[in-house]
Computed example of a mutant assay.
Amino acid sequence: MKALTYYPSIPRFLAARALGKRFPSSWAPLRLVELPEPEPPPGWVRARVRLAGICGSDLALLFGKNSPRLSPFFSFPAVLGHEILAELEGSRVAVNPLLACAERGLEPCPACARGEEGLCQNVAEGSLAAGMLGYNRDLPGGWGGWIVAQPERLHLIPDGVPDQRAVLAEPLAVALRGLRRAFAKGDGYGFPGSVLIIGAGTIGLLSLALLRALGYRGRLDVVARHRMQADLARKLGASGVFASSRNALENIGAKEYKPILGPPVYRGGYEAVIEAAGSPSSLEAASWATREGGTVLLLGAAGEVRHDFSPHWFSELTWKGSYTYGRADFAYAVGMLPELNGLEELVAPPFSLPAWRHALAAIRQRRVVKAVFTPSNP
């Protein structure tokens, strides 16, 4: 099968950091290679990939934005792609890509025992190399023709859900998990009176759609830097869409102060802010856009950044970080797909694997929100 494989290289990593913005695909350490179709281990199944998304974490890896401190928990070279819609015996399935204790032949760690495989203590232990599907040298991810998985990791897509909505199941589970961590109370949700989402990429827009689907009717504003993102945010139920957090804070009536150095700071912002962009500037903006005593939900993978922590303690903010999902989060996200009409508008027409440079350029040039691959294998 043909597969897009990431080959780590320190010189290319440094080149991608330095030149990735100017040459968005030239320095990406990817190769389209021919690999044998994977053989499923005993008790596993093999599924044909229909669509596989390009995630922000994939881009961070390709363009040198990931923290090297996380390197023990992934293994390369690897076929990338962890947002996977596959087909098994004629049925469409969303693939939970986690490789936790069960897949590694280990007794459940405390996190896995309570269904929180995203917090598995053994992601670099056991019979498999470190990392989940898409970041694992032993098993291929979705940027190829086939994947193998345990049957428990495959979730049937409900009838009537288009493929380009179904391929969003994995990032939808990420957003759902984050919202649950930030706002769940008892058997329901204790939503704040006002929420600002900074970043209108896939995770930001999915968070917006989920909040509305979960019943949040309060003020829900979005910072979107690009017109396509802004249009989608309005369609998905944003109360207001702003070009910057400063514009959003002015609109909500926060008071601006000018420090002796640096950009303005604020008092009286939003009760909760979802940071979904994963950049130094968005992290800084989220810190000051949150009202005193409020909550910041970190869904953007910011990596290594220099950051002023003054508002964390000065405004007594609660910070919640979220990375993947638990078993129930993924299943619940798949079950919500039928009611999330319009999400497929986030997904551009699929790119073939040989067109990977065009796919990366389209993302970096903000011509698409979500790019996906369709395997070229028959």
Rank of each mutant, 00 (worst) to 15 (best):
E103K: 12
H82E: 01
V79A: 04
E103C: 12
E87A: 09
L61Y: 08
L62E: 03
P72S: 13
E103Y: 01
G56H: 06
R46G: 02
D58R: 00
N66H: 06
L70F: 15
L51A: 04
L98N: 13
S57N: 12
E103G: 14
L99W: 11
P77I: 10
L99E: 00
A94L: 11
L62Y: 03
G64V: 06
H82G: 01
G53M: 03
E83P: 12
S67F: 02
N96E: 11
F73K: 07
L85G: 05
S67R: 09
A47W: 13
G56F: 09
A86D: 02
S67L: 03
S57Q: 06
S67V: 01
S91M: 10
G64Q: 02
G64H: 07
E103S: 13
P77F: 04
G81W: 10
N66Y: 10
P42D: 14
S91E: 10
L59D: 04
L59I: 09
S91H: 13
V95R: 05
A86E: 07
F73P: 01
R92K: 06
L99V: 09
A52F: 06
R50E: 11
R50C: 04
A102K: 14
S67N: 11
R69K: 13
D58T: 09
L106I: 03
L62P: 00
R46V: 01
V49D: 11
V49N: 07
E89K: 09
R48C: 01
P97A: 03
G81S: 00
R46Y: 12
A78T: 05
G81P: 14
A102E: 03
L99T: 02
L106Q: 00
L88F: 14
A52C: 07
E103V: 08
F76L: 05
L106D: 05
S75K: 11
F76A: 09
V93Y: 12
